[in-house]
Amino acid sequence: MFVLHVNDESGYFMWNIVKAEIVKITAKPRSYIGFVAITVIVGLIHLAMYLDGLNYIGFITTPVQTNFVLEGKILNGNLVWFLILQTLIIQIPLLVALVTGDLISGEGAMGTIRLLATRPVSRGQLLTAKFIAGNVYVFFLLLWLGILALGLGLWFFGPGDLIVIKSDALTILQSQDTLWRFLSALGIAFLSLMVVSSFSMLLSCFSENSIGPIISTMAVIILFTIIGTMDIPLFDLIKPFLFTTHMVIWRNMFDQELQWDEIWFSLSVLLAHIFLFFGISMMAFRKKDILS
């Protein structure tokens, strides 16, 4: 049983609340769905690439191989890591929402929010602690993805130059030039997922059950992703205003020459979304009626 120690030192006090929130997240079985899903998907992708990776690579590089020969070890741990990141970063927001969408509304549904509010903790501190704890969960989810994808990738396939496949271009990065890019990409992915966690927490503030915020977050991400995928002129006008457009900026870390202006702009848009969502959440949660 975790006991909340109240202390005058605000930093220590805050840390205790965060710890309490982390313990609550770890106590819920749903928090492990993400880790299990990542483990299964990463394992399956590695198995598929091990058994049939060369055919897959052959298929996606066909436009190049009609005129040229690609010499060298194309199927390698770095490529598999990249493919996993590219595939999973679309799905991870859904796994994140599963936990962060429940942070406030879950308390409401169980009736524990009233109990929490009787503690000598302000609503602002409580929300901040939940926000931090939610993002600690996101951090460990991404860390698990990074370790698993890289570790298994290098173990099965070994290192090698990375072919980054875009719909209209190919970039080939030298093996020694990839690790820092992967780590930066994970850092940017973390910021992107913080947008998702703050958005789902915002929805969670307006709901009395967890299903609503989780499903709504997923629906918004799916809708924005579909708009982002379709090359329709009307959608091209909307795309810059969707946070999902800026969430994929991690891919720009794999350009041969980095477009820093574009990267910084997207990072600031993501940060602005985090502050905006968290700010609205704070206002909503402070005025939230917990008695009804």
Binding site: I60, P63, V64, L83, Q86, T87, I90, I165, K166, S167, D168, A169, L170, T225, G228, T229, D231, K239, L242, T244, T245, M247, V248, R251
Partner: peptide, 12 residues
């Protein structure tokens, strides 16, 4: 060079 965005997972 052109491959479908869905195959390249090059969304957004």
């Amino acid at each position: 060079f052109k491959i479908p965005k869905a195959i390249a997972a090059d969304i957004n």
